[in-house]
Design a protein around this nucleic acid. Structure first.
Lengths: 192, 192
DNA sequence: CGGATACCATACGCACGAGTATGGATCGAC
DNA sequence: GTCGATCCATACTCGTGCGTATGGTATCCG
């Protein structure tokens, strides 16, 4: 009944704890973030933890900041590198739709918005992403007001989708059906 | 520092506890549902609670079922009573947008999807609402596949909006701006 | 008006998870 | 090799919130 995952028998750093914390958050939510559970999973005990962090709260904070840093920079820069502005939106949609793994932490944090520590982080991240979206819509030809509202709508649809399909297990949509949904979304949310 | 809200000095029933529980959930989330806190708020002690319910879990269950019952029947029947199918969608959108109070419990439950008891309830409620939406879209002229996907998109936008504006406190959108957003949503999501 | 029933208070036990104290092991530098 | 710094184990304390035990008070019914 020993630790299972990590055969790494080397000593741990603060970053290791933060990564493990993010993984646990993605899997079981912020509420499941307990130091003894984490320690067990890493094959050590609390004694180790409290050497690296002053408190559980500090670990959460560090993990959140780490996640915020890691960011979505690659996606953003790759999208912005595309020459044709009209082609950016469909590409962005398809990309996000097919790389759902990185969004698992975001989905988990969505369920933890009653926790004071996650609110500012989520506010910043969501704000940045929506501004990015707004810009793309403007470059695609919408006037500023329309672009802003369309970005709000699109991002809300993204967030809602995560909730309904990730955490809630609604009728388990199939692969083809999901692709059809994405294309429908592109048709209705993208200026033709 | 005594109980503040209820001047009702009569004795309590199980329904009183369930209502208080729903109110507390709407205000502070499912996680804040503690029996001693609830008792304090009702001006009694735990002794009362454990006469009405076997456990905290039982109260949550009863409260959720009560909420699911209370339902959104009035809204649905009123919308379905409208003669012109094309007029139903805008009306539904505006209605939901301007009566956000009843959605506070739903928003709170959205943040508690890691709790096993709320998942089936939310699954049922969301499923019913989406079927309702799908029907309206079909009656408004969309072919079945389009109607289903449009309903998914619309409901996801609804859920996402609750998350982003209710729980998260994004840039505090103004009243006029919000109305403009709703109209934009109607234009892009409603078959013209 | 007296007793059964419904409702509530008080005082416990108990589990669980955060945080502390302290000593042991391991690694790098000289 | 040994010595200081880094990393970890063991064994506690303590607060919090659920659930229980038991006795008290209000209310209704005959």
């Amino acid at each position: 009944m020993n630790a299972s995952a990590k055969p790494e028998r080397t000593r741990l750093s603060a970053e290791d704890w933060e990564d493990a914390a993010l993984k646990l958050i993605a899997d079981q939510g912020v509420g499941a973030l307990a130091v003894e559970a984490l320690a067990r999973q890493l094959g050590v005990t609390k004694g180790s933890f409290y050497w690296h962090f002053r408190t559980r709260e500090a670990l959460l904070q560090a993990a959140l900041e780490r996640w915020e840093q890691y960011g979505e920079k690659e996606v953003i820069s790759q999208i912005e590198a595309m020459p044709d502005p009209r082609a950016r939106l469909p590409e962005l949609f398809r990309r996000v739709a097919h790389e759902l793994a990185p969004h698992r932490v975001y989905a988990a944090l969505l369920k933890a918005l009653d926790h004071p520590q996650v609110v500012p982080v989520m506010a910043r991240v969501s704000q940045r992403r929506m501004e990015f979206l707004t810009n793309i819509y403007r470059e695609a030809g919408l006037v500023p007001d329309e672009a802003l509202n369309r970005a709000r709508l699109t991002y809300a649809a993204y967030v809602g989708f995560l909730q309904l399909n990730f955490t809630l297990g609604l009728p388990r949509i199939s692969h083809e059906e999901f692709d059809a949904y994405v294309e429908h979304m592109i048709r209705t949310l993208t200026p033709s």
